[in-house]
Amino acid sequence: MAEQVALSRTQVCGILREELFQGDAFHQSDTHIFIIMGASGDLAKKKIYPTIWWLFRDGLLPENTFIVGYARSRLTVADIRKQSEPFFKATPEEKLKLEDFFARNSYVAGQYDDAASYQRLNSHMNALHLGSQANRLFYLALPPTVYEAVTKNIHESCMSQIGWNRIIVEKPFGRDLQSSDRLSNHISSLFREDQIYRIDHYLGKEMVQNLMVLRFANRIFGPIWNRDNIACVILTFKEPFGTEGRGGYFDEFGIIRDVMQNHLLQMLCLVAMEKPASTNSDDVRDEKVKVLKCISEVQANNVVLGQYVGNPDGEGEATKGYLDDPTVPRGSTTATFAAVVLYVENERWDGVPFILRCGKALNERKAEVRLQFHDVAGDIFHQQCKRNELVIRVQPNEAVYTKMMTKKPGMFFNPEESELDLTYGNRYKNVKLPDAYERLILDVFCGSQMHFVRSDELREAWRIFTPLLHQIELEKPKPIPYIYGSRGPTEADELMKRVGFQYEGTYKWVNP
């Protein structure tokens, strides 16, 4: 592979701008107003304001973009700056750019259920340069409990009458099928589907988006991507930290609602779906819905739930269990780990287990898709061969690698495990991989909904998990304890083995 010439960040961002501006969906010269509902909250200060700053800094926003914060707290732009700027990672050389960014910011205080507050917000936006005809993007960085009041008031008082209007809704989209349907029906009564952007930030990850290209742009994968060759698929999300004093919020939802029903299920769809007619948003989402419709409700015998306990040999936070978090209700049975087996009941995947695993306070930070292939028929190497695996590593250190057998150097035919490896950090030294939120917010500006969740996708996802969630809430089974920093409950490994996964433990990928 030829040595790549190092590029400056300015040059890299210039390439990104060229890609972005050559499309006809990006209205570079139009006025846009980006409204952050819930501007005083954690999500706004840690993710949304920093993301908008990065896009502005790199010249990736339309030229005439204004940012308006809205929340109940009586704040000023200076207050917003004070709480969000520490997350910007701005350099001293960017000081003038930073001043320009905050000059485009404003803030309006108001209630979430008060019509007069929204009329005041609308008047404020109209007073901005060309504000009355601007395109408006409303980001709901809010708890779902206020979605209905907020969307109703936005629709009645704050819509642009000339430009387009788009609304970005953060997960969780309800707690179960019934609450999700209620919320979807409410929002759909106010906005068209092409105006609604239900954001799952995992769909903005580079390697998640790469799944489609790997599958449908490489001839070698087509013939082997089926039940005849693939023994099982494992989708993993692991965090090495616990709730760390923020367990009160987590306890309301648990690990299945927080990660599995959305992030992991979306990745499953991209692995299992048929080739779409095109890369058009609805063509892709149509195929994802077909996959979900082929999955039956989760069966309790295919589920393992766990909850982390303190590690007596650990240090600091590792010595504390979930129930030691003062914000967690006493005696909570909320799971911090889950392993679930699903089956896609169609011709391509009949009988292939899709194993979804996620948890907190585990032994490493990792998100990946792992396809394990069947054993080689007619073994001539005296059971020395391990199964081939194709691994798409989402985070950290984005990579695609194939675990395969090669001859060990020497005189004899002794096979050993090795890999074919594409590590993004080595291959793409001159490429700026956008943060997931950067990519998705740019998608909203461009009107691309491919990486957002459609209402029928959402409904099918909740259909699969709601009976299990209701059973857990009714019966309150005690989750299996696992030690902070471990791989999780051993019962999860036993479940995976029972459905056909072979864990060798003899080879570990190392970032080159």
Rank of each mutant, 00 (worst) to 15 (best):
G69Q: 04
L43F: 01
R9I: 09
R81T: 07
G248A: 05
S184Q: 11
E244D: 15
V150T: 11
E252H: 15
F138G: 02
R219D: 01
E63S: 10
D24Q: 06
Y197K: 00
A103L: 12
D30Q: 14
I196F: 05
G131S: 15
I154G: 01
R81E: 07
P223T: 11
W225G: 02
T10H: 10
F237N: 01
N122C: 15
F87I: 07
T91G: 12
F101W: 04
Y202L: 03
E148Q: 11
F66D: 05
I15E: 12
V108W: 07
S73W: 02
I35K: 03
G163D: 01
P86M: 10
Q83D: 13
L142V: 12
V146D: 02
L16C: 09
L183R: 01
S40Q: 04
N229E: 07
T31W: 13
V77N: 14
K152L: 15
N126E: 04
D194S: 14
K46A: 01
E239I: 03
R246E: 02
R215V: 02
E99V: 09
N165A: 11
E193Q: 01
S40Y: 03
I36A: 01
R198T: 01
F241M: 08
P144E: 04
Q11K: 11
E99R: 12
N122I: 09
F56A: 00
W164Q: 08
D194M: 08
T65K: 04
R104D: 00
L121Y: 01
Q119I: 13
S160A: 13
F26C: 01
I48D: 04
T236I: 05
Q11F: 11
G69I: 03
Q111D: 10
Y139S: 07
R136H: 13
F191S: 02
N105P: 03
I255V: 15
N226M: 07
L203D: 02
R175Y: 13
S117H: 10
R120V: 14
A6M: 15
M212F: 07
F88D: 05
N165I: 08
F250S: 05
L140S: 08
E18A: 08
E19Y: 13
D113Y: 13
G247I: 06
R81Y: 07
D58V: 09
N135L: 06
I167V: 14
E18F: 06
G14R: 15
M125D: 00
K89H: 11
A149R: 15
A134K: 09
H186V: 12
G242Y: 07
W164I: 10
W225V: 06
L214A: 09
W54I: 09
I199K: 00
N135A: 10
L7D: 14
H201P: 01
E85L: 12
Y202A: 02
L20E: 11
Y202W: 02
R215L: 04
S189F: 09
T91E: 11
M37T: 07
Q209A: 10
R192T: 13
R120A: 13
K95M: 15
G131A: 11
H186S: 10
A231F: 04
L98P: 01
L61C: 07
M125C: 13
W54A: 07
S29W: 12
V146K: 11
G14C: 13
R81G: 05
L75H: 11
F21N: 12
G110W: 01
I162M: 14
G59W: 01
P50D: 01
F253D: 03
W54M: 10
G242I: 03
S188H: 14
S123F: 10
Y107G: 00
L60A: 06
R175E: 13
P92V: 10
M212R: 05
E244F: 09
F101I: 04
Q178K: 15
I48P: 04
G254Q: 05
G248Y: 04
D194R: 11
I80P: 01
F21T: 13
N153Y: 11
M159D: 08
Y202Q: 01
A115W: 11
I224C: 13
G59F: 05
I52L: 09
T243R: 00
A116P: 14
P223R: 07
Y112L: 01
R74F: 15
E18D: 12
F241K: 03
L60I: 12
E239C: 05
F221Q: 05
A6W: 13
W225I: 08
Y197P: 02
S189V: 09
A116G: 13
I154S: 05
I196A: 02
E63G: 13
N122D: 13
E193R: 00
Q195M: 11
R81C: 08
F101T: 02
G254T: 04
K45P: 00
F253K: 01
R219V: 12
K152C: 11
K82R: 14
N105M: 12
P62L: 07
E244C: 12
K46L: 04
H186I: 10
